[in-house]
Amino acid sequence: MARTRRPAAHPRSAIFAPLGDEGRATRVEKRIAEAIYSGVLADGERLPSEPELAAMLGVATVTAREALVALRAQGLVTTTRGRGGGSFVNRPRHPDEAVLNGRLASTSNVELRDRATLYTVVVAGCAEVAAAYAGADDVAQLRELVPDEDVADPARWRHADAELTLSIAALTQSARLTRELVRLEAAFGSLVRLPFMDPAFRSAARGRQVALLAALEGGDGDAARAQAREHVAQSLAWLLEQKAALPGSGTTSDSGGL
């Protein structure tokens, strides 16, 4: 199966940007864990060696080693020895729709809107800034991430939408902004993409993705921001409607958490 080309600017570069003076093992661990949960680091992907990881992040080799030990303890990384060995990503299975519906039912409307508000600000901001930097080649590669209309697999749509969102963030050339989105994706991304189970939502979402890429190609930051905001707004509206129809969700409209 042919591999999809990745945009030249990729969120992976933000994950391995130097940590600076705060480069403790817990921060290395957290950054890599968030990258795994958000999908920036793919299942089975080989991580840099301990010395390479330490050099990339600007920390001591022992710090990188401690972080990898902690990630192995969480089951997020596996390490093999010998020729061809190394540390490899062991990404947890993506929650199925039953699990996500359970999380949705136990989340208050207030919490859901609050998380969506923060997510919107970051995603829309990334789209606006990326419009100033995106070149024709960047947009051409982003278009390859958008599934064809006849694709019916919700998981493929969710993965594509996450990849598109994170790749646009990488085009901002801001490692801090990209890492903030990675953090939000790890905490909220799977839920915000639950609506891709709905064929009507998928069709409308594809239209928004195409319009967003056209805005990026035209360097129109306002239009890019508007499309990104609308995409999250439609997802939130779908989630609230779905939540209202779920058994037992009526008792959690003002309490609970994600």
Rank of each mutant, 00 (worst) to 15 (best):
P48Q: 00
A124T: 00
D222E: 15
D114G: 06
E97A: 14
E149I: 01
Q74R: 15
S255Q: 09
T165H: 13
L194P: 12
Y37W: 06
R206H: 04
D198G: 06
D114Q: 14
V99F: 08
A131W: 06
V151R: 10
D114L: 07
F196K: 07
I32P: 02
T63S: 08
N101D: 12
V69N: 13
G84H: 04
E180R: 12
V62R: 11
V62Y: 01
A131N: 07
D222P: 04
E66L: 10
R193L: 02
A132D: 12
D21V: 00
K30Q: 15
I36Q: 10
R176N: 12
R72I: 00
R113A: 04
Q242A: 11
H94K: 15
R183C: 05
A131Y: 08
L216G: 09
H94P: 14
P51R: 10
G257T: 02
F188H: 15
A211C: 00
C126W: 08
T80G: 10
Q141H: 05
L212W: 04
I32T: 02
N109M: 06
Q141G: 11
P147Q: 06
A73I: 03
A170C: 11
F188E: 09
R193F: 03
L239A: 11
G250F: 13
Q209Y: 14
A14M: 13
A17S: 14
G189E: 03
M197Q: 15
V122N: 10
R176F: 03
P247A: 01
T78Q: 15
P147R: 07
G256V: 05
R229P: 01
R72A: 05
G39P: 05
D137F: 06
D137Y: 05
A8V: 14
L216D: 05
A127H: 03
P95L: 05
M1S: 10
R206S: 04
L100D: 09
L53Y: 00
A134Y: 02
R183I: 02
V28P: 02
A152Y: 06
S13T: 15
G250D: 10
R27A: 06
A200W: 09
R91T: 07
C126A: 01
Q173E: 13
V69P: 03
A244S: 13
P147M: 09
A244W: 02
T117G: 04
A215K: 00
V122D: 02
S190I: 00
L100W: 03
Q209N: 10
A130D: 02
L76Q: 01
R115S: 06
S255Y: 00
T26W: 11
T117I: 03
L246Q: 07
A60Y: 00
R83M: 06
L236K: 11
P195V: 03
I15N: 03
A42T: 00
S190E: 14
G75Q: 08
N90D: 07
D153T: 11
A175D: 12
E22Y: 07
E97Y: 11
E149F: 06
E180M: 12
V110W: 09
A116L: 04
H94Y: 07
L171T: 03
E29R: 15
L118M: 11
A9K: 14
A2M: 13
R24S: 03
G250A: 09
D137T: 12
F16V: 11
V139S: 03
L216N: 02
E149T: 05
D114R: 15
A245L: 13
D222C: 01
I36E: 00
G75Y: 00
Q227F: 10
R208F: 02
V210Y: 09
R113C: 05
T120R: 14
R115M: 12
D198K: 14
A152E: 13
A140H: 00
F201H: 15
V99C: 07
